Amino acid sequence: MKRFLLGCSLLLLLSTAAGSAWAGGMESLEAFVKNVRSGRAQFTQTVTPPAREGEPVRNRVSTGSFEFQRPGKFKFDYKKPFVQLILADGQSLWLYDADLNQVTQRKQAQALGSTPAALIAAAADLRALQADFDLEAAPERDGLQWVKATPKAKDGQLQHVQVGFAGESLAALEILDSFGQRSVLKFDKVEVNPALPAGTFTFKTPAGADVIRQ
């Protein structure tokens, strides 16, 4: 389950961009929230733990697929190195660890809050995001427009998220948690507003799995 929680940590360089480029990040976020109702992509996630004296830093890399549909439905399907699933169906958040054959079910409204998933899939408009996050444009880099989102609630496990856009398309998430752990998700093969099959966000408990409801 520790590996799974790292996967949830469920979306910082300088440039010479002028003020207009900084504004572009907010414009991209607003267009994304307003116009992109669903999405599908492949992702690579790199988790870097905080440095400890005398110990080498060892990154953990995972790959999988990601789908979302507003309002409030998404699925992170991890394939390598471990099979794991994070699925929100609009009511519940489901966490599945294949190695443990264990499912955790939580009430979605309580579990998401000020999380990267809320930035991507939950909010209906920019005003809704601003109720939970302080938003500011960040310098353009890597050919992307960036927005930094800092949760207004100070008792969570998230310091901030940076979201990178290529136009209206989600391209990257950089997540820094309260323990100093950094998670970077890069998306490719991105599809904007695809028609997702019925049942995409329906969770089916695997045979014999232990189910923990919180």
Score class of each variant (00 low, 15 high):
residue 4 F to R: 06
residue 5 L to M: 11
residue 7 G to V: 10
residue 9 S to T: 09
residue 11 L to P: 08
residue 11 L to C: 13
residue 13 L to H: 11
residue 14 L to Q: 13
residue 15 S to K: 08
residue 16 T to Q: 14
residue 18 A to F: 11
residue 19 G to Q: 13
residue 20 S to Y: 09
residue 24 G to P: 04
residue 30 E to W: 00
residue 32 F to G: 02
residue 35 N to H: 10
residue 36 V to K: 06
residue 36 V to T: 12
residue 37 R to G: 12
residue 37 R to V: 09
residue 37 R to D: 09
residue 39 G to N: 00
residue 41 A to K: 08
residue 41 A to F: 09
residue 44 T to Y: 03
residue 46 T to F: 05
residue 47 V to G: 01
residue 48 T to E: 10
residue 49 P to V: 02
residue 50 P to M: 03
residue 51 A to L: 08
residue 53 E to P: 00
residue 56 P to E: 14
residue 60 R to W: 12
residue 68 F to A: 04
residue 73 K to C: 05
residue 76 F to L: 14
residue 77 D to V: 05
residue 78 Y to H: 06
residue 78 Y to M: 04
residue 83 V to K: 15
residue 84 Q to D: 09
residue 87 L to N: 01
residue 94 W to S: 04
residue 95 L to Y: 15
residue 105 Q to H: 03
residue 105 Q to A: 13
residue 110 Q to H: 07
residue 114 S to H: 09
residue 115 T to N: 10
residue 118 A to Y: 00
residue 118 A to I: 02
residue 119 L to C: 04
residue 119 L to S: 03
residue 121 A to W: 02
residue 123 A to F: 05
residue 124 A to P: 06
residue 125 D to R: 07
residue 125 D to F: 03
residue 127 R to L: 10
residue 128 A to W: 03
residue 131 A to C: 04
residue 134 D to C: 07
residue 136 E to R: 14
residue 136 E to H: 10
residue 137 A to R: 11
residue 138 A to E: 13
residue 138 A to P: 05
residue 138 A to D: 10
residue 139 P to S: 02
residue 140 E to C: 08
residue 151 P to W: 11
residue 151 P to F: 12
residue 152 K to G: 12
residue 153 A to S: 14
residue 155 D to L: 02
residue 156 G to N: 14
residue 157 Q to S: 11
residue 157 Q to G: 14
residue 157 Q to F: 15
residue 161 V to D: 00
residue 165 F to R: 09
residue 165 F to A: 09
residue 167 G to F: 07
residue 169 S to R: 15
residue 176 L to R: 08
residue 176 L to C: 05
residue 179 F to G: 12
residue 182 R to L: 14
residue 183 S to I: 03
residue 185 L to M: 10
residue 190 V to G: 02
residue 192 V to A: 13
residue 198 A to M: 06
residue 199 G to S: 05
residue 200 T to R: 01
residue 200 T to S: 01
residue 203 F to Y: 05
residue 203 F to T: 03
residue 205 T to A: 08
residue 207 A to C: 04
residue 208 G to Y: 00
residue 208 G to D: 00
residue 210 D to Q: 13
residue 213 R to C: 01
residue 214 Q to T: 01
